[in-house]
Every structure is written in structure tokens, then in C-alpha cells.
């Protein structure tokens, strides 16, 4: 069965992130000049304008910053069987924010600042998505 939901199109800046997900690692960029960690990927460091960067593995732990529960599917043909689902902004322990789905609990169980940890779900042989599930407080 083909995967119908939107798939990331990795580009020259983002490919290491998606390669990392496929290998079960949540990778962030770190500036080699000032140490600032950033996400989503960019060529220049917004803190010091350096183009020097390396990829470092996130702890994979964070907290729910905000969330929504999608009940009306858009587009209907793709998401009719998925609702209700939770989309969240998670603030990782490293301080950056990432959009994701919260799985492994009822939508009603999601709360502000809830501790969560990354879990990976393969969408296609090339793309694995970083999702999050409830975690014991770290």
C-alpha cells in the first residue's frame, strides 16, 4: 500500500536530518563557532552568522509546548482514517522546538509541559518520521 500522507522532500540542508531519522537518531545542527544549536536546518547560524556547522544527536526528550487535536480531516481522502490525531510543538531539552505527532496516549491525555520522548516511525524506505510519546519526567 502506498504512503498517501505528505512526505518530506529532503534538500541539501535537511538531508542529514532525515538520514539521521532513518538511523533512529534525532539530529540537530550545532554551530562550530558559537555552539548555538538550531532547528530547522539553515546554512547560517542566526546567532553569529557562521556557516560552520556540525550535526549532534538530541537527547530525544522534551516537553509539549502546545498541541492541537485534528478532528476534521484535510484533505479528507488522506486523513479520514487518521482523525482524531494530535499535532504538537515539542520543546526539546536542547531548547529548540519541533513539530510532531504525539502517539501512545489518547488525545485527551495530552497536557501542557507533558514530558515526551522521540520514537521513530518508518513511512517509506527513505523517510522515517520523528514522533513523540509520553515519557517519564527526565
Amino acid at each position: 500500500m502506498s504512503y498517501a500522507k505528505p512526505l518530506p522532500v529532503p534538500d541539501v540542508e535537511t538531508r542529514p536530518f532525515w538520514d539521521g531519522c532513518r538511523e533512529g537518531k534525532l539530529l540537530l545542527q550545532r554551530c562550530t563557532d558559537c555552539g548555538h544549536k538550531r532547528f530547522p536546518p539553515t546554512h547560517f547560524c542566526p546567532n553569529c552568522r557562521s556557516a560552520g556547522q556540525e550535526w549532534v544527536e538530541s537527547s530525544g526528550h522534551g516537553r509539549v509546548f502546545s498541541w492541537i487535536v485534528v478532528r476534521h480531516p484535510v484533505p479528507r481522502d488522506i486523513y479520514a482514517g487518521e482523525v482524531p490525531y494530535v499535532v504538537a510543538l515539542v520543546t526539546l531539552d536542547e531548547g529548540v522546538r519541533i513539530a510532531t505527532n504525539i502517539i501512545g496516549c489518547a488525545p485527551e491525555a495530552v497536557t501542557a509541559d507533558m514530558p515526551v520522548r522521540v520514537t521513530f516511525r518508518e513511512a517509506t524506505p527513505e523517510i522515517t518520521l520523528p514522533l513523540f510519546e509520553p515519557a517519564p519526567a527526565s
Binding site: K5, P8, P75, V87, A99, T100, N101, L131
Partner: peptide, 10 residues
């Protein structure tokens, strides 16, 4: 969009 739409945030 690769960091939003794949999660059904559209």
C-alpha cells in the same frame, strides 16, 4: 513545509 506537513499540520 517538510517539517510541518508530514505530521498532518497543513
Amino acid at each position: 513545509t517538510q517539517f510541518t506537513a508530514p505530521f498532518g499540520w497543513i
